[in-house]
Each structure stands twice: as C-alpha cells, then as structure tokens.
C-alpha cells in the first residue's frame, strides 16, 4: 500500500531523471504559446512588468498588475497585452487592447491559477515588436476546504 512515506520517497527517487524532461516540456509549451500570441515573431524579454503577490492566498483569485514601459504616443504605444498561464487548462487568460488614448499601458485584474507557475505577459507594440515579462506565483492551499453546500 502506498502511504505518505513511500510516496514521498518514490517521488524523490524519480526526481533526478524526471526533472530535465518536465522542464524541457514546460519551455516548449511556453514558447509555443508565445509563438501563438506573436504569430511567429520574436518575443523579447523586457519592458513588461508582471506584479503579483509571491504567495497567492487562493488559486481562484490572484491580483495581477501588468505595466508596460511605453510613452503611449501616437507613434509609439502598446497595442495589446496578453496574459499567459501555461499550467491552466486554458492557458491564454486574457488579452487587453490599448491605444494612445489609454495614456498608460497598465491594467490590473484578478486571475485564476491552476497551479504554482510563472505568469507571463506578452506585449505587442505599435512598431510590431513583441516583449514579455513574467513572475512566479506560488499558489497556497487552504487547510479547511469546504465540501458542503
């Protein structure tokens, strides 16, 4: 019978050889999602700040503030920001459309996260370039989960 101890030890045995494979798959998923968002264009790191609490109280509602460095002038502005959470069943969380009339390329909302993961935000600029930022969120579990209605 599998008890906690044998489960943990088997998990630890598996860790050294399993991790690189899982890691490689994770990277692929993220790259694939970014490619989907950018239509194949290169997505550069930088310019995008994803602000979340490091320890999230509950996966049902996590505050996220996305800020993109941009003058937001008619010549140079952010057109779209997309939030990605690759471990969610539907990894494309939301897209936000901005214009020079926004004045500031910043948005705050509350999202759902299925697991501990990086929240990635991809920004599309008016000049056709793509930029991304990310932050890791640790979703904590509650002690007293409700099973009654």
């Amino acid at each position: 019978m599998m008890n906690r101890r044998t489960f943990l030890s088997s998990g630890f045995c598996a860790l050294p050889w399993c991790t690189p494979i899982a890691w490689a798959q994770t990277e692929t998923k993220r790259e694939q999602l970014m490619r989907e968002v950018s239509g194949g264009a290169v997505v550069n790191p930088g310019r995008v700040i994803v602000d979340t609490p490091t320890l999230a109280d509950n996966g049902h509602s996590i505050p996220v503030r996305i800020t993109v460095e941009s003058p937001m002038t008619p010549e140079d502005y952010v057109q779209r920001v997309t939030i990605l959470a690759e471990r969610n069943p539907r990894p494309i969380v939301a897209s936000f459309m901005f214009s020079p009339a926004s004045g500031r390329a910043e948005v705050m909302t509350r999202i759902r996260l299925a697991d501990i993961q990086d929240v990635v935000a991809v920004a599309q600029l008016a000049n056709g370039t793509y930029w991304y930022g990310q932050t890791k969120v640790i979703v904590t579990e509650l002690a007293c989960l409700e099973e009654v209605r």
Partner: peptide, 20 residues
C-alpha cells in the same frame, strides 16, 4: 480599452485601467 478573456479571469471580474 478592450478586454478579451476566458475562464482564467476570477469570478466577479475586476479591472483597473487608464484613459487619457
């Protein structure tokens, strides 16, 4: 401003954004 979203946005959606 425009937001397009799926089930990844929390219940009782809340947004804060900016307009010039």
């Amino acid at each position: 401003f425009r937001a397009e979203m799926g089930s990844g946005i929390a219940a009782n959606p809340y947004f804060e954004f900016y307009v010039l």
